[in-house]
């Protein structure tokens, strides 16, 4: 078990850097994790992060990349619901990186 320190508080993460307690998540923690992933958060990034959090809230699972891409296309338009756009924002994979920043578990089936 590892921890990250943000704003004077300590948060538990697993060995890959995913938050252990989903309720620990806040914007500062998200920004901190994004920084460790070398991602500078923009409105476009937040749009995906917020979408993921809503998805998790509703279904209690982190979506597979293919499912996320399709669902984003439905909600935010085809220009955003495609791999080029999402990998542009999260180069190491929207499933892996965006879920980590959103404070969600790693998507099932994602290795």
């Amino acid at each position: 078990m590892s921890t990250i320190d943000v704003g004077g508080k300590s948060y538990e993460t697993d060995e890959e850097g995913y938050l252990v307690n989903l309720s620990d998540w806040n914007k500062d923690v998200a920004n901190y994790i994004a920084q460790t992933e070398n991602i500078e958060m923009t409105d476009q990034h937040w749009e995906v992060i917020n979408f993921l959090r809503e998805y998790f809230e509703e279904y209690q699972i982190a979506p597979a990349v293919r499912v996320l891409t399709k669902a984003i296309g439905k909600k935010l338009g085809a220009d955003k619901g495609n791999s080029e756009y999402l990998y542009g924002l999260f180069p190491y994979g929207p499933g892996k990186q965006a879920c980590k920043i959103a404070g969600l578990p790693k998507p099932t089936g994602c290795v």
């Binding site: 509703e58 279904y59 209690q60 699972i61 979506p63 597979a64 499912v67 399709k70 669902a71």
Partner: peptide, 14 residues
């Protein structure tokens, strides 16, 4: 326990 029943509603998206 984690309530995983909402995930059955996500199956359609899969």
């Amino acid at each position: 326990c984690k309530n995983f029943s909402p995930a059955y509603r996500a199956l359609e998206g899969y």
